[in-house]
């Protein structure tokens, strides 16, 4: 089975302090994978490594047959400045970056695709609204519309269902499952274990180091989750002692 992303003894971090250490694993192409772990486990850091905004401190991260343009990334909402005067349609249209780049203009056909993406996430009528006036759920729908336009083979979602209502979550989960059905690789950082068990066949449990990776039922055992918590509690100490000492 081919891989979409492979980690070989990978360490990632900030200011030379590792947030992810010695990770060895592979995300299978076409899989639907949840990344779970306690706070500070390095989940978001791992996604930033995959999109290339963090260079490895050690080891390797391979993208197999994927190019940078094949990856779409949903940042955490807290990474977005919602006070910036940007309308929904302008935000969503940025999903066409691969086609229009930094300088191209939107054709009539492109505008139609933007409208269809907005409609697909249930945001018709919100096109000209500033993003600052949207609720958390509406904002997440707009960001999913942008992802739809990116039409990527690998979709990375950083906490996509945090602080949104149940109906929005169900709608967005349907989009995620459709991507999976289309053969795309989807990787999502999640906190809600029930959602992971219900919708994500694969799970990577992280506590700065790999705890387990495989079918969700085999990974999310009480023992593994306890071990992940212990490893992250050990991370409260000096970074170089984290994880390994508690494992």
């Amino acid at each position: 089975m081919t891989y979409a992303v492979a980690f070989q003894d990978l360490s990632l971090g900030y200011d030379r302090l590792p947030a992810v250490q010695n990770l060895d694993s592979q995300i299978t192409e076409g899989s639907l994978t949840a990344i779970v772990g306690p706070n500070g486990a390095g989940k978001s850091t791992l996604l930033k490594g995959v999109i290339g905004t963090l260079a490895p401190l050690g080891g390797r991260l391979s993208l197999g047959t994927l190019a940078r343009d094949d990856i779409a990334y949903l940042p955490q909402q807290s990474d977005i400045d919602r006070s910036f005067p940007l309308s929904v349609v302008d935000l969503v249209a940025l999903g066409l970056w691969r086609e229009i780049g930094a300088f191209g203009s939107l054709s009539r056909a492109s505008r139609q695709r933007v409208a269809e993406a907005i409609s697909a996430v249930g945001l018709e009528g919100f096109e000209t609204r500033p993003i600052g006036s949207l609720s958390g759920g509406q904002m997440q729908r707009a960001l999913f519309a942008r992802l739809l336009l990116q039409d990527a083979r690998l979709v990375l979602l950083d906490e996509p269902f945090t602080a949104i209502d149940t109906k929005t979550m169900a709608d967005l989960l349907a989009v995620v499952q459709r991507w999976h059905g289309e053969g795309r690789t989807v990787v999502a950082v999640l906190h809600d274990i029930d959602t992971v068990r219900a919708y994500f066949p694969e799970t990577l449990l992280l506590a700065r180091e790999l705890v387990a990776h495989g079918p969700t039922a085999e990974v999310l055992t009480a023992e593994n989750q306890f071990r992940a918590r212990q490893m992250c509690e050990a991370c409260a100490g000096p970074p170089h002692t984290c994880g390994r000492s508690a494992a």
Binding site: G52, Y73, I80, D81, L91, I131
Partner: peptide
């Protein structure tokens, strides 16, 4: 507005 997205696409 969204520096992480810019870094992911360009």
């Amino acid at each position: 507005a969204d520096p992480m997205f810019l870094r992911s696409v360009s």
